[in-house]
């Protein structure tokens, strides 16, 4: 399952979500502002509290709205 770490009011997060939806990819939203556990996970994955972080396995991730990199990540799944 694809996970998108994000928070409300982050336009790039919305773009990632819209892009995944448009590609027909199912994903889970993990709000790092509302949930401290998700915030800790996000920091562990990317080393910072910057979002969107898109990941499948919690190791490889894409920071930001970068279609090419997101495509590459999805291709590894």
């Amino acid at each position: 399952m694809v996970k998108v770490y994000s928070f409300d009011g982050c336009p790039w997060c919305d773009k990632v979500k819209k892009y995944l939806t448009a590609r027909g990819v199912e994903y889970e939203v993990r709000d790092i502002e509302e949930n401290a556990d998700f915030a800790a996970e996000c920091e562990k994955i990317s080393g910072d509290l910057t979002v969107p972080v898109t990941t499948i396995d919690g190791k490889n991730f894409v920071l930001g709205f970068d279609k090419r990199k997101i495509d590459e990540l999805l291709a590894t799944a």
Binding site: F7, G9, C10, P11, W12, C13, D14, K15, I32, E33, A39, D48, L49, T50, V51, P52, L63, G64, F65, D66
Partner: peptide, 17 residues
Amino acid sequence: AGQEPGSNDEVQQFCKL
């Protein structure tokens, strides 16, 4: 929100809490 100026490389495409 959602109205970032520009959507090119000059603006970082991520947000920090």
